[in-house]
């Protein structure tokens, strides 16, 4: 179970919430409100005051690397290194079999793994980044617009893969602008709003 306590992101009220195993939390709110910053804070990629627990263990009780191998952030605009996608996906860990299976589950020919990343389309890269994020089976998956740049058919395949992760008992936090997708995947919803904008007379 993922538990967030008094997480203080600038411009937002302190956040406290829980997401259980096998549950998906949708994080909603206008652009620029801090949805990405919330995901990054949970992954401990930004220095944000507050506490985040995974099964009772706080993120700062363990080395950062160990935390992020369990609590995985997948960026909306994923970065790549090395020549091919295979290079960075294999560095992430996970068996070759699983990597190639997920690649074809997302509608991609596994041969694409050996093509230079610079020759791939945005949508192909986004799907391969999803493979990379899931390859070593992290416990918590923080997805920042995982289907934002995908066509309908590819988005449906990606959604299917995410649903499978939830069914397998993993915890998912999802930032998405696709209302239908949130309806289909999310068990819980968190609406982020600027307290100054809504509350002031």
């Amino acid at each position: 179970m993922l538990r967030v306590e008094q997480l203080t992101i600038p411009g937002l009220p302190d956040l406290t919430f829980e997401v259980g195993d096998g549950q998906c939390l949708a994080i909603e709110g206008p652009s620029g409100i801090g949805k990405t910053r919330l995901l990054r804070a949970i992954a401990d990629l930004d220095d944000v005051p507050g506490q985040v627990f995974l099964d009772g263990a706080e993120r700062h009780e363990m080395p950062a690397a160990q935390w992020r191998r369990q609590v995985r952030f997948a960026a909306a605009e994923p970065g790549w290194w090395g020549e091919t996608a295979r290079h960075s996906i294999e560095e992430a860990g996970g068996t070759l079999e699983r990597i190639e299976k997920m690649t074809s589950d997302l509608g991609l020919d596994p041969a694409i793994l050996d093509r230079p990343v610079s020759q791939l389309s945005t949508g192909e890269r986004l799907r391969l980044a999803l493979v990379r994020a899931l390859a070593d089976q992290p416990r918590v998956i923080l997805l920042d617009e995982p289907t934002g740049a995908l066509d309908k058919a590819s988005a449906a395949l990606a959604e299917e893969l995410i649903r499978y992760q939830i069914l397998a008992g993993r915890t998912v936090a999802l930032v998405s602008h696709d209302r239908g997708q949130i309806e289909r995947l999310a068990d819980l919803r968190l609406q982020l709003a600027d307290p100054a904008a809504g509350g002031s007379p």
Partner: peptide, 21 residues
Amino acid sequence: ERAAIEARLALGQPRLMALRE
């Protein structure tokens, strides 16, 4: 290369490895 470096950190690589290149 910040997107690539952060992708590596997000995968649990230590900073010296994420910044190796």
